[in-house]
Design a protein around this nucleic acid. Structure first.
Length: 114
DNA sequence: ATAGTGACTTTAC
DNA sequence: GGTAAAGCCACTA
């Protein structure tokens, strides 16, 4: 059976970046959050914050990646739709304090140097 | 190849 | 703190 949702070889090439992004997100410690730009930078894509979000939306369906730890540059949830509710729920489940759809980066902000 | 779009970011008012 | 505009990258039509 086909293990992945991959459609073509071109998809595979893009998957390289995706894997890098997913790996970075997976590196985020529990109880911490990172911005799209932060993840993109760590993944090797200095300005591809948009790419991270757009790609995640298609891949986080069954990847098992803690996408909920990825927030906006200000710790705000940029997600739309009902998934935002899951975002908050998941963050709270990990001990992250979410206030009005916003997280305090001063305490939950992820520092990749650690 | 051009135009439109998006789970982004920064600067300016 | 909110809104607006420009810049950024990659995908889709």
């Amino acid at each position: 059976m086909t293990p992945a949702r991959i459609k073509s070889k071109a998809e595979l090439l893009q998957d390289v970046r995706v894997q890098r992004v997913l790996a970075t997100i997976d590196s985020i410690p529990k109880g911490s959050v990172a911005s799209y730009g932060q993840v993109a930078e760590e993944a090797g894509l200095p300005r591809a914050a948009r790419f991270v979000g757009s790609t995640l939306r298609r891949f986080t369906n069954n990847t098992g990646v803690p996408w909920h730890r990825v927030l906006g540059s200000d710790g705000t949830i940029r997600v739309k739709g009902g998934i935002a509710r899951d975002q908050v729920k998941l963050l709270r489940a990990e001990g992250v304090t979410v206030k009005n759809g916003r997280v305090k980066l001063s305490e939950c902000g992820w520092d990749p140097e650690e």
